[in-house]
Design a protein around this nucleic acid. Structure first.
Lengths: 110, 110
DNA sequence: CGGTATCCTATAGGATACTG
DNA sequence: CAGTATCCTATAGGATACCG
């Protein structure tokens, strides 16, 4: 997504808009963020909640979101291991845009 | 994206929300739709406006959006050929969600 | 349970060349 | 200019097995 030609469109010329699209273009990103909207969840619950996501897929997604400062990881000591993922303040700000997209889908007839 | 397990999350259980995410998950979909917001454009202008999209990529994207009822294609007779793509009313309804995402990107520090 | 390591496949999507 | 046809590669992401 590195421009060879500079886009005429100022909206697109500002790569940050494109980065936002790229963020949501990862299959699970939006879904995972959305699933955390009500509070932190453990991976196992997250998977149940989402449905159809592999363990690997979830871990990778969470790692990715973590790296981008959208999600926090908190490990509670003990056995069996217990880890919880939640949204950062920045992550929360993505809920509105994501909701706009999801809500659009719900509104549309298919 | 066909659920093996039914998602616990009602928002996600309704596949239409997921379909919306999938729609925007295609690299160029959002960008192309966005670029048509001010009116119909010819492919060549669209490419200039977007920057970095291949001819093949654009054609495929437009075809895809057309199939989904988001974009119209109008061919004007004559030579050289002149074709214009524009948004359908349904396509227009996507502008708000897309804008929400793009605007988020612009707001965020990186 | 959370996470990692392998392996494997489908496919997105660019580069290039070509047609009407 | 609009579009198609080939070719090619990177990679997303599932399946499976395994570890602490």
């Amino acid at each position: 997504m590195w421009y060879v030609t500079t886009p005429t469109d100022p909206f697109l010329a500002d790569c940050r808009a494109r980065l936002a699209f790229d963020l949501l273009s990862h299959t699970w990103n939006a879904v995972v963020i959305w699933s955390l909207r009500e509070g932190p969840l453990r991976p196992v619950d997250l998977r149940r909640r989402i449905g159809g996501i592999s363990s690997k897929g979830l871990t990778e997604t969470l790692r990715r979101l973590q790296t981008n400062g959208l999600v926090t990881r908190q490990a509670h000591p003990g056995s069996p291991p217990r880890v919880e993922y939640g949204l950062t303040p920045l992550g929360r700000t993505l809920l509105a845009p994501i909701d706009a997209v999801g809500a659009w889908g719900l509104r549309v007839r298919r």
